[in-house]
Design a protein around this nucleic acid. Sequence first.
DNA 1: TGCAATTCTGACTGATTAGTCCAATAATGA
DNA 2: TCATTATTGGACTAATCAGTCAGAATTGCA
Lengths: 215, 215
Amino acid sequence: MTPDTTDVKTDRRRARTRAALLQAGEALFSAQSVDAVSIDDIVLAADVAKGSFYNHFADKEALACAIAGAVRAEAEAEIDAANAGVIDPARRMARAQAVFIRFAVRNPERARAMVRLFASAPLPNAPMNRGVRADVAAGLASGDFRGLTVESGVLMAMGVATVAVSRLLDEVEAAPATALCRDLIFGLLRGLGLPEPAARVLGDEAVDDIFRETH
Amino acid sequence: MTPDTTDVKTDRRRARTRAALLQAGEALFSAQSVDAVSIDDIVLAADVAKGSFYNHFADKEALACAIAGAVRAEAEAEIDAANAGVIDPARRMARAQAVFIRFAVRNPERARAMVRLFASAPLPNAPMNRGVRADVAAGLASGDFRGLTVESGVLMAMGVATVAVSRLLDEVEAAPATALCRDLIFGLLRGLGLPEPAARVLGDEAVDDIFRETH
DNA sequence: TGCAATTCTGACTGATTAGTCCAATAATGA
DNA sequence: TCATTATTGGACTAATCAGTCAGAATTGCA
């Protein structure tokens, strides 16, 4: 009766199955729309029976949400890690952009799935953008950023990040990611009102630092 | 035999059914993904028989492409009309952004469909962005824009436009479109390197002019 | 009015799908 | 070792869907 005895150690079987479903969904959603992927496709790719799918998720949408949440959490964690201890709002902004782009370049499949799954409910004030909003607000308060509302600043940052990722996921990547990244972060910071030399320096610093970090 | 005799005046019946299908598809695609809309849904909404659908389009994708093309052409035409005779690249850019946003605000359904249908094959060098690219290149050549590549400039412009439209289609429109529009165009021009006072003036001018034009 | 050309119609088919259900299975605790 | 429990697997069903086709309807023309 005590569900604890079973729940506590019960199963890593369950966790394994769930992970397989998430991974299969990630791979499939990176290539096709949610509606175009059938649950049969998913369980086939995950090497799991159909009944098991419904044991973990109510339907396809639930799986898609779980995947979107997981990917977003992963990207968010990387950003938070890179910005731990960084106080200057403009520098935080630059680093966040660089990390986000790096994430997409390093995990193109996950990023593709993220883009697709956010196409449904994308921009508003998703938890992921709380950080962006806070940095924009702080930058405006400190005077680093000037001349626009928090709302507009957030939108610009999101627009640049979105467009950068979409561009870098278009395999036609003649341009190296870092060069584009430098330019876009520079342009974003300048657009937010940072003086030009500082915008260039912070953008380059962030790209150099973030893209060289672990490797 | 002479196909002309029939083709020339033959049918506005055909045109009517085609238009009905396009309109129905527009309405449905503005609310649901392409895969989520069935051909039965479309012919029901268009009040047309299923056979007629295949008389005009090979499949659902063909309809979606036709719709995307039509909407894009309409937006493009408005931009071209607003920029006829305007030479200054920065001013052209500002006006194009304002017109694009105005188009989305005035035709939310069409805009929603456009956003959804471009989510598939969005950014690269679609014909629509030729104009943007030309203006960015001209601005860089004239020295109005500074410090970044054409590619980056185009991406920034597209990012701002995309994010603005997405934001304004989120019915939670606490902010009036024009205020957001002013801010975003200002931020974009400043990001592209235009001196700050000019960016502000051009943005405000464009918004005032475009949003008051016909009404 | 009647003929010819073409589009429209909607019932039909074969295939696919989401979701159900219960017997087989594996893990745990005593 | 054995009983208990939850997970798993995959066959099954009912519904939906894309695409077809032969006849009806409409239009242009003589």
